[in-house]
Amino acid sequence: MDEFWVFGYGSLMWNPGFSYEERIQGRMIGYRRSLCVRSWHHRGTKETPGLVLGLDRGGSCRGVAFRVALRDREETIEYLRQRELVTFVYRERVLPVRLDDGRKVQALAYVVDRTHHQYGGVVSVTEAARIVNRAVGVSGPNPVYVANTVAHLREMGIRDHWLEQVAAEIARLEGVEV
Rank of each mutant, 00 (worst) to 15 (best):
L55P: 15
V132M: 12
R62H: 02
V111Y: 11
G63Q: 03
L163R: 06
R33K: 11
E169S: 01
G157H: 07
Y110N: 10
G121E: 02
R91T: 03
Y31E: 02
V136R: 12
V166T: 04
Q165D: 14
R71M: 03
D2F: 15
W40Q: 13
Q118W: 11
L12S: 05
W5Y: 09
V125K: 00
S60Q: 08
D56V: 01
S139M: 08
E84G: 10
G26Y: 03
E174L: 14
E127I: 01
L173C: 03
V86R: 02
G140P: 02
Q25H: 10
H152N: 15
R62I: 00
E21S: 11
N148V: 02
V6S: 06
V178E: 14
L85G: 06
R71T: 03
D56K: 03
R114V: 04
V123Y: 06
D160T: 01
N142C: 13
W40D: 14
V122L: 11
M156I: 07
G102F: 12
V64F: 00
A167Y: 15
A65Y: 00
S11K: 02
R27I: 07
H42D: 11
Q82C: 14
V6M: 05
R32M: 05
D100V: 11
R81P: 07
N15I: 12
L53N: 06
L70R: 12
T48W: 10
V68T: 07
G121D: 06
V144Y: 09
L95A: 03
G157T: 13
E78R: 10
V132E: 00
I170D: 01
V125E: 04
E78Q: 09
V178W: 14
G59R: 03
R114T: 10
V150I: 11
L53D: 03
P96T: 11
V37R: 04
Q25L: 11
R32H: 00
L51W: 04
D113W: 05
Q165F: 11
Y119P: 09
P49Q: 10
Q165V: 01
R154P: 08
A107P: 12
G58I: 05
Y110C: 14
A107K: 05
